[in-house]
Design a binder for these strands. Sequence first.
DNA 1: GCTATAACGCTACTGGCAGTAACGAAAAGA
DNA 2: TCTTTTCGTTACTGCCAGTAGCGTTATAGC
Lengths: 223, 223
Amino acid sequence: MSNAGVAVSRPDGQELVRGRPRHPDVDAAIIAAALSVLVDVGYPRFTMVEVARRAGVGKPTLYRRWARKSQLVVEAMRTQMPGEAALPPDNVSDQLLHYATRLSETLTHTPLGRVLPGLVAEMATDPDLAAAYRSLIIEPTRQLWREAVERGIRTGELLPDTDVDFVLDALAGPLYVRLLITGAPADPDAPWLAVQLVLARYSASPAVGAADPRRTISAGPAS
Amino acid sequence: MSNAGVAVSRPDGQELVRGRPRHPDVDAAIIAAALSVLVDVGYPRFTMVEVARRAGVGKPTLYRRWARKSQLVVEAMRTQMPGEAALPPDNVSDQLLHYATRLSETLTHTPLGRVLPGLVAEMATDPDLAAAYRSLIIEPTRQLWREAVERGIRTGELLPDTDVDFVLDALAGPLYVRLLITGAPADPDAPWLAVQLVLARYSASPAVGAADPRRTISAGPAS
DNA sequence: GCTATAACGCTACTGGCAGTAACGAAAAGA
DNA sequence: TCTTTTCGTTACTGCCAGTAGCGTTATAGC
């Protein structure tokens, strides 16, 4: 997102750089500083001055790269997202459990959890930020989940009437509610419980969902 | 929450009021103005000056009643919560559907939905606000839901291993996720779909949850 | 080298808002 | 009348986002 107004592509395909080039370490230093500030004080007390101070950089240097504070934050958050990591298990229930568990860990063990509430607020009034956050952070994750669910429908593991988007909301919802609304500590079982709900309703194999299905499906998180 | 530093209770139980009494309409005027500002601009652009202006009141008058902007907002929100309205249906599934539908409507049709994101952010750094919001707005609602679920367990409608708090999260989660995270428009079916999930997993009667259970339980929101 | 260009750190500024202080005036009880 | 407290008004402090202008420095092309 560090806007590349510097480089102008030339007819020969090379980059024409005029003037003093940007220092190669500054971007990284700013992102690192931003993350450290976010971890320390959360979004609402996150100030650009403090980021500049910790990065050993002038404030205008920040604004040369990111026009808004919120954009810098989104960029910093994006670096915290887990990589693709080719999905390991080959059945839908384990895949969903894997994803839900990973989201739960991201929310509890990375700055994302600490920052999310403030970001959510800003999204409500800053459409650009909302779009950036959703397309860079939320959507990539949801797309993975969506593909897993659709695959499950195709293979017959899930019922054909499965409401894909609702399933995604149902898996992520309980995790977000705790973090954002009730403030209760994250329940390590929550991902598994959520997957249970989804399977109980949408799994094609009728046995699932009653009694104690934990053993009938899988033991725990795959990661 | 309008702090009553004015009245001092006397031994005889009467109120001892010294000095000029507060104007009886000012509290209501401020709350009304606050709500109108919230509706118009949302929490992050909500300013006390604007509230004072619309209420035809000085800024210090606001601060005489509510020490923080966030406290005024919580108070204003509280007036928007639906009343108790003795729970109508007598079976758990209809009760939960009723509550979930009411939450959905509150989130979409009252200022609460517009304000919630910003409030959530502020809660992350303001423990007092978080406590006030949770005890005045979140908890009363959850308590109703909790009682319904526990009643269902007692009557045998729900399985004894039902995880009560998780059920609450699972019912509210999908609604909040849309509002706060994905920004997708509220799905009018979401409350019903969420109840379906819960019943499919925790209902004691095994028929529920497969095929098209919509007709096997109830048609729609009870309100 | 020399020149043009743009990044850099620095300082200073504008503008908006939360929250406070101080005032004179008004409303009530004692 | 005296005391107390509210009320509106005005003015203030302090914080922060974001911008402007400065002199300096690194690089590419001539």
